[in-house]
Simulated scan of single mutants.
Amino acid sequence: MFPQSICAVSMEKTSDQVFQIIALIVLVITSQSQNSCTAKTFTNLTTDESSLLRLKAEITLDPDLTITRNWSSRSSVCSWIGVTCSTRHHRITALNISNMGIYGSIPPQLGNLSFLASLDLSSNYFSGTLPRELSSLRRLKYISLWSNGMKGEIPSWLSLLPKLEYLSLRNNTFIGSIPISISNLTNLYHLDFSNNSLQGKIPQELVGMQRLQHLSIQYNYLSGSIPPALFNISTLRVLAFSVNMLSGRIPNDLCANLPSIERLHLRGNRLSGQIPSNLSRCSQLELLSLRSNSFSGQIPAAVGDLRALQFLDLSDNHLSVYFPTGTLPLSIFDISSLQVLSLQRTNLYGNIPREVGNLTMLISLDLGYNNFTGMKTKGYVIRAFV
């Protein structure tokens, strides 16, 4: 047996050694963690250049060799075509390589452009899915991927871009439903998901986007009804849901809360009921397209109060009215700004009013496939589509 004092000294030394080892381990781990965080968060213009060179490497076809020849480390990245840098931070704030006919994919390294505020890759042939790393670009205000070949579902992480004001994914091959999380983008004034393959319903939550001026989700496969509260977004100027499978009715007080609406595209759906009677309150309306639905009843006389109207298409509905002086409200012929009037296949009959001659700005008139008195032909047929 060792003397008690010797054991105490031995145990004390062992305890000190263990403590020193633990402290060393903690120090190493902390150092590695700090280095790791620094590596992840520290970016500079060199990082920006590396990110764009990675994008260049993902380009499989550059028809005009614009990127191939111009993007080179031999010159400053801020002088590259399509690149804008801030004078204050000397970092890339905008990337615009639209309309170059480029083929390729979007690399995750673009998520390292931490000062990027505007991303425009529109009218190219980028394919693949949107990398989640782009959710790190918290300064982004503008995204346009219009007319590419992007696929997959519209990513829910787009809602993590709090400053986003403009978002266009038009003319791609996105599938799935519209993510509800998009409604978190409360600064958005322009949203365009048209010409994709989206399905499902229009999220009710979109009504929370009270700064929207342009909402377009045309040429998809949306079903169900249009949330009535969407017609309460008073900032809307363009509301476009044409060519979907939407059903139900639109509110009779459609224009009550849309004082700024200029273009209303609803053609090519399964909407029914009567055309709203309070259209006169949409005093800024320039385009009204309700073509190819199942609207019934009379054409409201209030249409004639739309003195800014340039395009009116009510064709291919189940309208059926008769006035002694003609089949149409004469007030329509007081719209001096009207350039396109299309009412084919609307079950109209009676006489064509002589007042049609008052429309001196008219460049397209289509009254074909109706039952006007004394008219056995197809009527006036000049095709007009929107």
Score class of each variant (00 low, 15 high):
N99F: 15
I154Y: 05
F323E: 07
D316G: 00
S337E: 10
S105R: 15
Y142K: 12
Q32C: 10
V381I: 13
P259D: 03
F385D: 12
R170H: 12
P353A: 07
I102G: 07
P179Q: 04
T14K: 13
Q199R: 15
Y189L: 01
E286H: 08
N70K: 08
K201I: 03
G152Y: 08
N96W: 09
H90P: 04
E133G: 02
S260W: 09
D366G: 01
N269L: 09
R132K: 13
W80N: 04
E58T: 15
L365M: 04
N187A: 03
S247F: 10
L140K: 07
E286P: 01
Y166A: 06
T377R: 14
L55A: 08
N351P: 03
I250L: 10
L116T: 03
L341I: 00
D334M: 06
P259C: 09
L341H: 08
H265A: 07
A256D: 14
A8F: 14
G152F: 10
L140S: 01
L27I: 11
L134K: 14
S136M: 11
S216W: 08
E49F: 06
Y219R: 13
S342V: 00
R132F: 12
Y349F: 15
T346Y: 00
L288Q: 02
V321F: 09
N112Q: 13
L164H: 08
L328N: 05
N96K: 14
I178S: 04
P228F: 08
V243P: 01
L160N: 15
F241C: 00
L53V: 05
W146T: 12
T235A: 08
S33L: 14
G273N: 14
N232S: 13
Q344S: 06
V321H: 10
N99H: 15
T373R: 12
L169Q: 07
I182V: 11
M1F: 13
I21R: 12
P259N: 10
V26L: 13
G128A: 11
L290P: 00
N96L: 06
T129Y: 11
L95K: 15
V83S: 03
R291M: 03
T14H: 11
S144Q: 11
R88P: 01
L288S: 00
R281F: 13
